[in-house]
Write a protein that binds this DNA or RNA. Sequence first.
DNA 1: CAACTATATGAACCCATGTTCATATAATAC
DNA 2: GTATTATATGAACATGGGTTCATATAGTTG
Lengths: 103, 103
Amino acid sequence: MNMGSYSCCIPDKHEFKHVSSLSTLLKLVGEESRLKILCILKQGQHCVCEIEEHINQSQSLISHHLKDLKEAGMVLDEKKGLYNYYSLTKKGKEITDLLFQIK
Amino acid sequence: MNMGSYSCCIPDKHEFKHVSSLSTLLKLVGEESRLKILCILKQGQHCVCEIEEHINQSQSLISHHLKDLKEAGMVLDEKKGLYNYYSLTKKGKEITDLLFQIK
DNA sequence: CAACTATATGAACCCATGTTCATATAATAC
DNA sequence: GTATTATATGAACATGGGTTCATATAGTTG
């Protein structure tokens, strides 16, 4: 196929780098269990067992997901005695605010 | 564990229904090949072989992804002779505009 | 100290889905 | 008609990652 130049209006390869990291982020937040966790943390700080009750899934699973979200800089934790309280970071808030605008 | 009522500030189960459909959408657009396609279509209408050249993947794969995006109402197609031109729908534009705000 | 609770984590399992392959369809050119 | 090009699609494959299981760690209570 040869229909002349249109590369002027198509992203260059280097712009796809942003696409790659955006894809990584969207895969993280797109998973349903993690999205539910974000939805809960949007309401404020909560410990693991509170989240566990409300999305009705195992403690282990939630800990795994929280770890992933933490490593991505979306949430942070604060240990108080036995409990570990998680909340959204600034980045986490910005992104979830954007996502939940989608209708 | 019993630390009293906090359900007032946690989403009810029915609110997770939105989470479910949002998750479906984010999984769709979060996949890197599809995200690249959306990135290209943001620039305007393009046929399959144009997209194929620019993201350097097989025709078959791109057709599959375009079908998925079409079924989700993100893109529409217009056949002209041999070529099939795809573009973003209104919904597709709104969503990609939001997504590419994420930094 | 032992018993219990909350949380973390590595390994294994299993399934969804992205990708490839082969082929079909449809439009064009000759 | 045949040949070629652009696109679509079903089936098979293969890999990633969500989930579970078992266990470890750490704090609390008595």
